[in-house]
Amino acid sequence: MEHHGAALHLLVKDESFVEQLKQDYKDANITEKEEAILDYAVKLTRKPNSVHDNDIQNLRDKGCTDQEILDVCQITSYFNFVNRMAEGLGVQLEK
């Protein structure tokens, strides 16, 4: 969260928004589409075997294109992979 939060802060230049996302994105000032994307990313991260067709349809219903859904799935999966590799090898973040 800290590392990616810092990168997000550089992109959006709104520290309070980034902090709100880190605390609880459901209370942040985001669109329904963005919330659906984050819900999906959380579900894919925490319980990947619980993702079903209705989750994909929900993203479509909130305005996501198939390309956006693929992007979210790939980015979420990639970060999960990298984080697990780093944690599994005991890699420490630079400070």
Rank of each mutant, 00 (worst) to 15 (best):
M1K: 14
E2L: 10
H3C: 06
H4M: 10
L11D: 09
L11V: 15
V12N: 07
D14T: 14
E15K: 15
S16N: 14
F17H: 01
F17N: 08
V18H: 03
V18E: 06
E19I: 12
K22V: 03
Q23E: 15
Q23N: 15
Y25T: 00
Y25A: 03
K26S: 13
K26D: 11
D27Y: 13
D27T: 15
D27V: 09
A28C: 12
I30F: 03
I30Q: 06
E32R: 06
K33D: 03
A36N: 09
D39A: 11
Y40S: 04
A41M: 09
K43F: 02
L44K: 01
R46H: 09
P48H: 02
N49F: 11
S50A: 15
D53C: 01
D53E: 13
N54S: 15
D55F: 00
I56K: 02
I56H: 01
Q57D: 08
N58T: 15
L59F: 07
L59M: 05
R60P: 01
K62Y: 00
G63E: 12
G63D: 07
T65N: 02
I69R: 01
V72F: 06
V72E: 11
V72L: 05
I75H: 02
Y78Q: 05
Y78M: 05
F79E: 06
N80H: 03
N80Q: 03
F81W: 02
F81S: 01
F81K: 00
F81A: 08
N83F: 10
R84H: 11
R84N: 13
R84G: 13
M85A: 14
A86L: 10
A86S: 07
A86E: 04
E87T: 14
E87A: 15
G88R: 01
G88C: 08
L89F: 14
G90P: 03
G90T: 05
V91Y: 02
Q92R: 12
E94C: 10
